[in-house]
Amino acid sequence: MAVDLATVTRIAKLARLRLAPGEAEPLVAELNGILRWIEQLGEVDTAGVEPMAAVIPNHLRWRPDAVTDGGVAAAVLANAPASEAGFFAVPKVIE
């Protein structure tokens, strides 16, 4: 698997990363290096091995259905560039 310039530009756009002119090209080479490195895993024979979800044997923990959090509107809004009447206020987005 390898990425080209168009793919890198598209991924950057989807991730809302602004790339300065000339920044994308080196990223193509760097990402392809990472992908080649990961692909070495393909050399291991995994026939008959169950896919695993985590490296340590662990199970998902469940929480009881109880209200234990919230009521911290001030903290939630503290880092917002703008807020009004308890809402986050963002530049108008309308469909």
């Binding site: 929480r63 209200v67 919230g70 009521g71 911290v72 939630v76 308890g86 809402f87």
Partner: peptide
């Protein structure tokens, strides 16, 4: 459910904005 899928904040309808929000 009383609380959210992945947090302990309440789910009741009609509360004041951002008061039923956990971090």
């Amino acid at each position: 459910a009383k609380s959210k899928l992945f947090s302990g904040a309440a789910t009741a309808f009609g509360a004041a904005p951002n008061t039923q929000v956990s971090l």
